[in-house]
């Protein structure tokens, strides 16, 4: 902290201490805030509202980690990143974790030296097209002009899809979602492609969402999850198990409404272990016993976060689908807390 003030005086704008190598946990605690990288604005996942408060599904993960580590879900400094800047921001220590609907791929994990700490949303790339064109399958898109939001794995999937189906297309890469929408609505491209969740979020903002259909083909696997730097397994554990706690909480029926009651002690030992009334799970990670309780209390369990930000009652209106608990036929499966 002293260093911070000194550099602040020296350089006018201030320098925040942070470590590129190890002990992210100590730095976060010393700083008192969590620096969390998010998108520059995708409604439902991470976007500032009219009051400038960040809201969304990815934002909730950041807040849960902040609550677990610092005891305060609002002690988060959200750093908007683009597809280009996100990895440098994480690698250089500007942010402690990245929760920016980033697809878990081999090369990012291995070559770029990041550690994906789980999956908070199972997504896949889809296509949106005006209803009036009468297209019912992506294989009928031969010769279409396709708007792509750049900076994701989208371009690669798209090229692979059209190549393997032996049909042609005209790519129009667009930097921001807002401009891609503008192009799409003006008819400058026939199809808009990005992750299916992003398509739903985009369609929700249209004047007449009913005029556009999302084609049934999902052309890629996009497991989106928070990630941290390689080389600090302790910090990775904290992010991983905070996410798992949110998922397990839904499975075990812990919600923001009944958490106080359950924290008093139940006869389900796993709930007790998560909420810290039994065992020393928190201590093993270098946190206190209540860490998961705070993480769940700040925004609710996974199901609540989903319902509040992107669920069927919101304008985005995503069904749980693959993102249901494994007990309900989905893919969410938290390893046991013991």
């Amino acid at each position: 902290m002293k260093k911070t003030v000194f550099f602040g005086a020296l350089t006018v704008a201030g320098i925040a201490a942070g470590a590129a190598s190890a002990a992210t946990l100590d730095d976060v605690k010393a700083r008192g805030t969590l620096n969390c990288g998010v998108t520059t604005g995708l409604v439902g996942f991470a976007a500032p509202d009219a009051n400038g408060e960040w809201q969304g599904f990815d934002v909730a993960v950041c807040r849960a980690v902040a609550a677990a580590v610092l005891g305060d879900g609002s002690a988060v400094e959200f750093v908007p990143t683009t597809g280009k800047t996100r990895f440098t921001a994480l690698a250089s220590g500007e942010i402690d974790m990245l929760a920016r609907n980033t697809t878990w791929t081999f090369s990012r994990d291995v070559d770029l030296k990041f550690e994906f700490t789980g999956v908070n949303y199972y997504d896949g790339q889809g296509f949106m097209i005006p209803k009036e064109l009468g297209v019912s399958s992506a294989k009928d898109l031969d010769g279409a002009t396709v708007c792509i939001q750049t900076g994701t794995t989208t371009e690669l999937n798209l090229a692979d899809f059209f190549r393997s189906n032996n049909i042609g297309y005209e790519p129009v890469p667009i930097e921001t979602n807002a401009e891609a929408q503008q192009q799409y609505l003006a008819g400058a491209c026939d199809v808009y492609t990005t992750d299916a969740s992003g398509l739903a979020a985009t369609r929700a903002t249209f004047e007449a969402p009913g005029d556009h259909v999302i084609l049934p083909e999902i052309i890629s696997k996009e497991p989106l999850g928070p990630l941290v730097r390689h080389g600090d397994p302790e910090w990775g554990d904290i992010v991983r198990w905070t996410l798992n706690a949110l998922i397990a909480a839904e499975e075990l029926g812990i919600s923001s409404t009944n958490i106080e009651e359950l924290a008093a002690g139940t006869n389900n030992p796993e709930i007790n272990r998560i909420l810290g009334t039994e065992g020393t799970l928190g201590e093993m990670m270098g946190l206190d016993a209540d860490w998961a309780k705070r993480a769940i209390a700040v925004g609710g369990n996974y199901g609540e976060i989903f319902a509040k930000n992107i669920g069927e009652s919101t304008p985005i209106g995503l069904a749980r689908g693959l993102n249901a608990q494994w007990t309900e036929g989905g893919l969410l499966y938290s390893p046991p807390f013991r």
Partner: peptide, 21 residues
């Protein structure tokens, strides 16, 4: 070193995987 990265231009020879209009 801390980030485990290196400077290498080998990627320039790999297939790009994206299309340009």
């Amino acid at each position: 070193e801390a980030a485990g990265l290196n400077i290498s231009y080998e990627f320039l020879g790999n297939p790009s995987g994206y299309d340009i209009n």
